[in-house]
Design a protein around this nucleic acid. Sequence first.
DNA 1: CCCCTAACGACAACTCGTTGTCAAATGTGA
DNA 2: TCACATTTGACAACGAGTTGTCGTTAGGGG
Lengths: 153, 153
Amino acid sequence: MTRSREKVLADIMVLIFRLNGRLLEQGDRLVAGLDLTSARWQVLGALALAGRALSAPQIAEAMGITRQGVQKQLNLLLEEGVVERRVNPSHERSPLYALTGLGEHRYAEATRRCDDWAAVLGEGLSDEALGMTETTLSTLLARLQHPVPPGPV
Amino acid sequence: MTRSREKVLADIMVLIFRLNGRLLEQGDRLVAGLDLTSARWQVLGALALAGRALSAPQIAEAMGITRQGVQKQLNLLLEEGVVERRVNPSHERSPLYALTGLGEHRYAEATRRCDDWAAVLGEGLSDEALGMTETTLSTLLARLQHPVPPGPV
DNA sequence: CCCCTAACGACAACTCGTTGTCAAATGTGA
DNA sequence: TCACATTTGACAACGAGTTGTCGTTAGGGG
């Protein structure tokens, strides 16, 4: 055996910490000039993928962060005119948010840049390696979100 | 073909963002009661792995973050007595930092808890999947740290 | 030997996420 | 219908990271 499974897991965790930092950094660089940051871009992504107006808590749910964090970005995005409020028929004080024309345009441009960049980033990595990485990470995430199924803690 | 490589890459990125959040959360929970947080724990880890006293910038280099971020944690760790300053023969104003006995004890306990937890977390994942994930992530990180080798930007 | 640059610690300001509290709106069960 | 728990937005405080500036120290080339 090469190394213990725990060691490999620990290495993967460190890699995730660093990748998180570098991805946010490169993401910010990628959308600089579009009046976006990684955080705002992700909010736009949640709206674009949903294909419909969402409330702040719904966006937070989709992004896996808290509603307060999302709300902060939404208020800024509103000021910049990339999202707009719509009345929520089922809640008076909690409006829905949708992309404006400007927002859709900016998101499309960000997506184009990201795809180009991702193509370069993934060069030479086999489909198998990418697929297995995605599967493994998503298994780990699932276990982390539901605290640790069995075992006495 | 199932999905484009860009889509898989994008999914992996989102997974990394979420895993980062969950890992820090679980890490904090894991070392709660040891007067540690994920950030302080990582600093202790850098010192323990080096096996010798390091300066703040050296720790930052090892952790992949800035020296200011490390310094902030070091100042707190000093107050708690888990690390101590040592004179740096090659720099008067930049001391070296080393684990105290208390620090080594706490780090050992944190490591024990982490290994137990990692064993549960990795259950059922094949060595091949873990190894390939580690390799893929480390390739991605290398490309992110050296901005994007070829290609006209 | 002196001057200039690089590296360092301290400090402040900022981003992005978290938690917690408060008040208003919603939904549910007796 | 009314009481109560849940959900929501606003606000404040905090943790962890970043950048930038300032003054000091180390190191190298004229």
